[in-house]
Design a protein around this nucleic acid. Structure first.
Length: 742
DNA sequence: CGTAGTTTTGTTTTT
DNA sequence: CAAAACTACG
């Protein structure tokens, strides 16, 4: 069959197994997207399933877009009826239709983290909470976790023990009350409310169960409990649930992802078929071996070993520097020279780090060296002040009850409406049961408003004018109208700084985003709307905008890199206290460390051809210079796979550099030798004797079972020749091969 | 009410 | 060492 061409055996099996629960354990680079898209195509073209009955859930919009394109390509006509979306956008689509049953209106707004914080801050102020003891962020984190567990305010209150939890319970209740009053949902609510809807209205659930007879979930290891409930509810009728994931790549526990969703999938759905994809098509043998060696140190995982038919490739490079400055210089230098000698293009490189803050130094060096680059993540595009301001104007125009948006822009640009006035407005609003904007419309009635009355009236007039115009204008035109009316860009131009210039560029980008949203709607045949646009931008992540066509180096966190691949990867900041992070090293337990290790595994497996890890002996942290040890993860890579190389020397000060490179060179041995003891105490180089001999059956992690042909004492180690059942005869060093007698 | 200057706070990771 | 939050003055 044409559809199955080019797929390996387990991949084919996964495509053909269509009925009942299916768990695909797909290692990094094992072609899982391919399997999923072919599976969808198979369902439609061979099984005669209507595209309408298929739901595919991905983690990011980018993944959804990619899958959509690939499905379109193989399925062709009718493929657009397949729902390919993220959890969140899928929920939004469902809620827009039915949320009125839950006491919200269909044009609800979605609050981002910033909005959540402002709202909580307001609640704190109103209730006179001591911000020295309790932090908005901390309470919000608790609420978020409660929501991920599906615990509502009442239930939380019942279970609350101790002062802090009781306070959280009451704040949780108030927070939800305020959200609802503003007709707003936060990220977690999107899932919570959908599940609530399904549980309270079985007929609505039944509708969607009928509709989504075949459900596929990608990156299943990163689902949290509420997402699990959502999927289980939908799939409980037809039970055609196919989940794809890799427990070794579960890196979102901090945000509620429950690794046991994938580890225990077979227990939850007893008739589950399990298929493992362990052949990697992405990386060289050395890179894969390094990844396998690192992840092997985790205990909470499903045992598996990735293998590949690719070349061994070059060794993993490791470089240690005196400080972060030299580290960045080295990376920039390597990229420049590779580019100059035409070995690689800029787009082949990615710099991966643990925290966003680490990007700065690389950015500076890249600017100096003229290397084109793009930073993914950091401050979300839509969280930037100028963008947020304008979006809040749009929100105000779209939704009369969005108090948060109104309060944000009422004095942007300066209209002389200050804190005192706003407090009066808000008191009036609360006592009369009005929204903030409605109260402003009645400003005349508000006691003590005094001189601010005219200013408020001016603001109300402006919004009314914009609302009227919104009916005839497209989103991008409305945006330009707003910018024109409030003179936003003019103000920025007047500033004339580099920063204000960057903001103007961001604003231009926002306008073109609006324009392309309209384009997309036209192409799809849907009607562009203001609320549609707002929804679109509320759910995008920064990775979503990564474009493989652009020729620049990408800088991003290890988290953002999941699902991507690059020819050449630099994992920078490989220091104890940075990666693994300080919190994990000092306060974390084993499972925290295992999560960090999985993150490292994700990083290593992003590389196709070439991987470099770097560290620094000292770094500037929180304004202090700190001495750092090399990351334990570097030490977990077998010595034989690593090349420490000539230490990079700056051309400016040869002499000094040579001295420091000698120092670094001499530390290199110390870096690695204790490592081998630590991570593989059972394998200290050449063993005194071997517990197997010629003729014995042995097991190898990668090649499986085989028979020992001969053993030669090679001085440093024994050279063993083994005839493997599946891979034929291989020669290997006993100390490294870790053969087990059986 | 707005600004400039001062103090405090903070580091994971993000849909 | 930043950025954010707070304070005091014009």
């Amino acid at each position: 069959m044409e559809l199955l061409e080019g797929l390996n055996e387990p991949q084919k099996e996964a495509v053909l197994y269509t009925d009942g629960p299916l768990l695909i354990l797909a290692g990094a680079g094992s072609g899982k997207t391919r399997v999923l898209t072919h599976r969808i195509a198979f369902l439609i073209s061979q099984m005669g399933i209507s595209p309408w009955n298929i739901l595919a859930i991905t983690f990011t919009n980018k993944a959804a877009r990619e899958m959509r394109e690939r499905v379109d390509r193989i399925v062709g006509m009718g493929s657009e009826a397949v729902w390919v979306s993220t959890f969140h956008s899928c929920c939004v689509r469902i809620l827009r239709r039915h949320i009125d049953r839950l006491g919200y209106s269909g044009n609800f707004v979605i609050y981002d983290t910033d909005d959540q914080k402002s709202l909580m801050k307001e609640i704190f102020q109103r209730q006179n909470i001591n911000t020295k003891v309790y932090k908005e962020k901390g309470i919000l984190a608790k609420i978020s976790h409660a929501k991920e567990e599906g615990t509502g305010p009442s239930e939380y209150e019942k279970e609350a023990r101790g002062e802090e939890e009781l306070l959280t319970a009451s704040l949780y209740r108030e927070y939800q009350r305020r959200l609802q009053a503003n007709n707003a949902l936060d990220f977690d609510d999107l899932l919570v409310k959908t599940v609530e809807l399904f549980e309270q209205y079985p007929e609505i659930l039944a509708d969607y169960q009928e509709r989504f007879r075949y459900i596929m979930v990608d990156e299943y290891q990163d689902t949290n409990n509420i997402q699990f409930r959502f999927v289980s509810l939908l799939a409980s009728r037809y039970r055609n649930l196919c989940v794809v994931g890799d427990d070794d790549q579960s890196i979102y526990r901090f945000r509620g992802a429950n690794i046991y969703n994938i580890l225990d999938f077979e227990d939850t759905f007893p008739e589950t078929k399990v298929i493992r994809l362990e052949q990697n098509y992405r990386s060289t043998q050395n890179i894969l071996e390094a990844a396998n060696s690192v992840i092997r140190n985790n205990t909470e995982r499903k045992e598996k070993t990735l293998w590949t038919e690719n070349e061994p490739g070059s060794l993993i490079h490791f470089r240690q520097f005196m400080n972060g400055f030299e580290e960045a210089e080295y990376v920039a230098g390597e990229i420049s020279s590779a580019h100059r000698s035409l070995d690689a293009d800029y787009r082949d490189f990615a710099i991966l780090y643990r925290t966003n803050a680490q990007s700065r130094m690389f950015e500076e060096k890249f600017v100096m060296s003229g290397i084109p680059y793009k930073i993914v993540g950091g401050v979300n595009f839509y969280a930037r002040k100028e963008i947020k301001d304008l979006v809040c104007y749009l929100r105000t125009v779209a939704n009369a009850t969005d108090d948060l948006a109104v309060n944000r822009i009422v004095n942007v640009p300066r209209r002389g409406i200050g804190a005192a006035t706003l407090t009066r407005v808000s008191e009036y609003a609360v006592s009369h049961g009005l929204s903030q904007f409605q109260a402003m419309e009645n400003a005349r009635e508000i006691p003590g408003i005094g001189r601010s009355l005219g200013k408020l009236e001016g603001f109300v007039r402006l919004i009314r004018v914009l609302r009227t115009k919104a009916d005839d204008l497209s989103v991008s035109e409305l945006l330009e109208e707003i910018i024109h009316q409030i003179g936003y860009v003019e103000d920025l131009e007047a500033e004339g700084t580099e920063e204000s210039q960057a903001r103007i560029e961001n604003i231009d980008e926002l306008i073109s985003t609006a324009a392309s949203y309209e384009e997309l709607c036209k192409k799809e045949g849907s009607t562009p709307s203001l609320s549609g646009f707002l929804e679109e931008i509320a759910l995008v992540a920064d990775v979503d905008s990564v474009d493989e066509e652009d020729n620049h180096v990408l800088l991003m966190t290890l988290h953002s890199a999941k699902g991507l691949e690059f020819s050449r990867v630099f994992m920078v900041g490989m220091d104890e206290g940075i990666f693994p992070g300080q919190g994990t090293v000092l306060y974390g337990d084993d499972s925290d460390m295992e999560e960090e290790r999985r993150l490292c595994y994700v990083g290593i497996t992003r590389a196709k051809q070439d991987l470099t890890m770097t560290s620094a002996r000292s770094r500037m942290l929180r304004g202090k210079i700190e001495e750092l040890q090399v990351s334990r993860f570097v030490k977990e890579v077998p010595r034989d796979l690593v090349e420490t190389g000539q230490v990079y020397t700056d051309t400016r000060k040869k002499l000094e550099q040579m001295r420091s490179s000698q120092i670094i060179g001499s530390t290199m041995k110390q870096v690695f030798s204790p490592a081998l003891k630590r991570t593989k105490p059972e394998n200290p180089g050449k063993p005194a004797s071997l517990d197997y001999g010629p003729g014995d059956q042995v097991l190898h992690v990668k090649f499986g079972y085989g028979t020992v042909i001969s053993i030669v004492d090679g001085g440093r180690d024994y050279e063993v020749t083994v005839d493997f059942e599946k891979y034929g005869t291989k020669k290997m060093f006993a100390g490294f091969a870790r053969l087990r007698k059986c």
